[in-house]
Design a protein around this nucleic acid. Structure first.
Lengths: 223, 223
DNA sequence: CTTCGATAACCAGAATTTTCATGAAAAACG
DNA sequence: CGTTTTTCATGAAAATTCTGGTTATCGAAG
């Protein structure tokens, strides 16, 4: 998951970021609400961990502004404020969870897993290799925040390679899965599409991802 | 919501049941795991509140059996066991939340509201993206104070796009959801309506909100 | 290490598919 | 009925996919 941590206390923030990253998440850290909103505006976070006591805008204000802006990203509140009234307020403002500080890190991870379970109903919704991300539902391919504009064929082709990253995919298999049964052997469509795809990947700064195995097929290199 | 409370301590159970009912829920109470499973097997519950320390089967066992039985009803654990390891175990077994006893009743209600929010999307009476606001109840679409005059079809179409803003909506899905089952493949009604809708949005100064994904469908751009 | 046939990369349009845009017909509504 | 909304039909425009040819690269045999 790509997670934004909004926490003004530097040491704690770094600790959380590090812990998340050690557990396979991608985490960014900001120290104030307005900074956080800017980051989120650029989009593409799966979760926000929000402290309530922030300088300037309070966490609640951040949450409100977020929603007013039309962002639907899930927000989990982490706060030392533990009185029920505050918890209720936070949850009713649209937070998906409220974890009292000090919290156990494993519990945080477990609660994040719940969200994951919920958002990515079947785990094959997002394919990832290096910093290339393919979202099957929204039909987007994203590299470093910018989405590259693939055609249907290119998308299907990359999906096949991505699903079996590291493995050799024969041309026969590509023909079968990306083109329908009525595939004209003796055409060079596959090569041409590989070429187009590579060109678009190159333009996004991901060169050499697709490897050619002469006489056999193609393989997507894993890092 | 229809809620099943599995709690062996009679007094606490009655208290919870009563509190839920006073807040508009329908609550049933059982005192053991096996009883609870029987109830759930027959039933249409929206939520289970599960104590962990039960006579006979423990709460965890109940949870496991429940899932083994194919029931997907959300379970919220209420327990005096507050150590992180137990919490994590509970969450990883598939509980949607874990509330430590003693708990504040308002917090319980708020956490139930979260689940409600999630399952019944319909209570989302106002959809918003950027400065465009759709009020489902009054059937209005407003941009900067002025409401744009959409027809029913246009409204339904925009609603679908808005509900899943940022995601690709395929034409099949549009046909299914905005037109009924009897839609004629090979007609261009969808395109025409997208065109009309775009024209009205443009006229209100919101150009380029609906993105077309050639060969797939449409997508409402989030800021 | 060189040569040669096979294979793939690359490129420029042509062919095809999909979407846009529009006016007019049909249907629904009051 | 007259008005509004929805659908149909159509050609233009845009995007995608495919084709055919040339050049580059690979890999085995000499």
């Amino acid at each position: 998951m790509k997670i934004l941590v909004i926490e003004d206390e530097r040491k704690l923030g770094r600790f959380i970021k590090q812990g998340l990253e050690q557990n396979g998440h991608v985490a960014d850290l900001t120290h104030s609400g307005s900074e956080g909103l800017d980051q989120l505006a650029g989009g593409l976070y799966d979760l926000v961990l929000l402290d309530l006591m922030l300088p300037g805008q309070t966490g609640f204000e951040v949450l409100k502004n977020l929603r007013a802006f039309g962002l639907t990203v899930p927000v989990m509140i982490l706060s030392a404020l533990s009185d029920p009234a505050t918890v209720v307020q936070g949850l009713d403002l649209g937070a998906v969870d409220y974890l009292r500080k000090p919290f156990d890190f494993d519990e945080l991870l477990a609660r994040i897993r719940i969200l994951q379970r919920r958002t990515t109903t079947s785990d094959n919704v997002v394919l990832r290799v290096a910093d290339l991300e393919m979202r099957l539902i929204s039909h987007e391919v994203i590299k470093g925040g910018i989405s590259l504009n693939l055609t249907n064929r290119e998308f299907a082709l990359l999906e096949l390679l991505l699903r079996r990253a590291g493995q050799l995919i024969t041309k026969n298999e590509i023909a079968e899965k990306v083109w329908s049964a009525d595939y004209d052997m003796g055409s060079n469509v596959i090569e041409v599409h590989i070429y187009q795809l590579r060109k678009k990947l190159d333009a996004s700064g991901i060169a050499g991802l697709i490897e050619t195995q002469v006489g056999r097929g193609y393989r997507l290199k894993t890092p």
